[in-house]
């Protein structure tokens, strides 16, 4: 017998269910007066540095039907590529940008509309710069464990071509599933849960 590692096991995930809004965006589902505003609903103010952009994101099931009861959280660096987090040791991030946002999909259209800024580049473990990206975390009824992925930008083709994470994707035909299309100041991004256009999800 050797020594025991005596570690705990992570609490197992369970689905967020169809009524996730009650807990995470109560004002969105008509529960007013408990919290002044839904957490993560506003990401930028008039002092936030960087290029203002919109992200229009949908989540589609295996029949290409948009989910109307999903919830998306995004996490990103500021315009200089710094995270507003104690784990960021390279410098102080923009104090007017938390870098985190939360949006339920619209109950009619299935659309999540984020107003944010375009993130700067963040280094990979070996110091190479990753392409600008936004981390996504998606939960909903029918999703047993939150899905992780990233949104990259169609007008950053050169940076995307050198990105160390995109480079890990063996089937190159799947790389475009992580690239949002620019339309004016807005990027449009469809997350496909299943099928030919299935988005690349992460285990990281």
């Amino acid at each position: 017998m050797a020594q025991s590692l005596s570690r705990l096991k992570e609490s197992p995930s369970q689905t967020a269910g169809p009524y996730v809004h009650i807990g995470l965006t109560p004002n969105f589902c008509g529960i007013s007066g408990v919290y002044a505003a839904d957490l993560g609903a506003t990401m930028v103010n008039d002092k936030t540095k960087g290029e203002r952009i919109g992200l229009k994101i949908r989540v589609l099931d295996g029949t290409s039907t948009p989910l109307k009861d999903a919830l998306i959280e995004i996490w990103q660096a500021d315009a200089d590529g710094l995270y507003n987090s104690p784990a960021e040791l390279r410098g102080a991030a923009d104090p007017n940008f938390q870098g985190w946002g939360r949006c339920p999909t619209d109950m009619e259209t299935g659309l999540c509309d984020f107003e944010t800024i375009k993130p700067g580049r963040v280094p990979y473990q070996d110091g190479r710069l990753m392409a600008p990206h936004v981390s996504l975390w998606i939960v909903a009824r029918g999703i047993n464990i939150g899905l992780q992925t990233r949104l990259y930008f169609s007008d950053e083709a050169q940076a995307n071509a050198q990105d160390p994470i995109l480079a890990l994707i063996e089937h190159r035909v799947r790389v475009p599933t992580l690239i949002a299309e620019r339309q004016d100041n807005t990027y449009v991004f469809d997350v496909h849960l299943q099928g030919d256009k299935e988005t690349v999800f992460f285990d990281s």
Partner: peptide, 24 residues
Amino acid sequence: SSVLRSPQKAPLPFDNTLSEIAGP
């Protein structure tokens, strides 16, 4: 509900970068 809402392809594994290590 999990039948049409579950990815069918294997997830992409990689060790955390700062994007996963940092958080709000």
